[in-house]
Amino acid sequence: MTAGPLEIIRTERLRLRLVEPGDAAVYLEILNDPAFIEHIGDRGVRTLEAAVSSIENGPIAMQRTRGHSMYLVERLEDGRAVGLSGLIKRDGLEDVDIGYAFLPHYRGHGYAFEAAQGVVAHARLLGIPRLVAITTQGNAASIQLLLRLGMRYQGTRVVVAGEPALNLYGMELSEER
């Protein structure tokens, strides 16, 4: 009997687990969703093979080197993959940031907020002292989620040279810093 993917976080309705190459189809769907491309960016991942490579060089590699990454979000009720959420360390940011992206059909059900709350709790357990988030200036739903999560607007920041400035939000997770 083979063990399933490693669960990292469990909330009332969701399970966040390591992304695996076998998740390439849903990963490809998320990365090519028009809202993902508009608000997060076009990753240029267009085939299952490219999605497998992106998973191996992205979440799997980050989990191995950093001890955290983006996780696949599944509903507990039926195991259906609904999106991604987790922790990312970007070269353009000093702190670890929280990220999330959900398939269109699963937006508006509170899954992103529930997953993000679990990710914040997980970041605390990992001893991450400060958590940030970035979002495009026009992404009202994401901005509302970050504020509800307890993050505070920190201004704008160019994260990748040559790209537009993004809104930066932050929160302290520990008293010491």
Results as ranks from 00 to 15, higher is better:
I37W: 01
H39F: 05
L87Y: 14
I128A: 05
S53T: 15
Y153F: 15
I30T: 15
R157W: 00
R152Q: 13
T47W: 05
T11F: 00
Q63Y: 11
A51N: 09
S174Y: 04
L173D: 04
Y100C: 06
P164W: 05
D91I: 13
T2C: 04
R10V: 03
R75N: 02
G162I: 09
H68L: 09
L6D: 06
S53N: 13
D42F: 00
R10F: 00
L168G: 04
A81Q: 01
H68P: 03
M151S: 07
L125D: 02
G155K: 00
E172M: 00
I128E: 11
L16Y: 01
N32L: 13
G155N: 12
R66D: 09
V119C: 12
D95E: 14
E172R: 06
G118Y: 03
E56T: 10
D33G: 09
M1R: 08
A123E: 00
H122L: 12
L28Y: 07
F102C: 11
A141S: 11
E114W: 14
E176N: 13
H122Q: 14
A25P: 05
R107E: 14
G138T: 03
M62S: 14
D33I: 12
G99N: 01
S54P: 03
Q137D: 05
I8Q: 13
L126S: 07
R177D: 11
Q63I: 09
R124Y: 01
T136R: 13
H109I: 08
M62F: 10
A133Y: 01
R66V: 04
M151Q: 08
E172L: 06
A25D: 15
L31P: 04
R13M: 03
Q154G: 07
R15E: 03
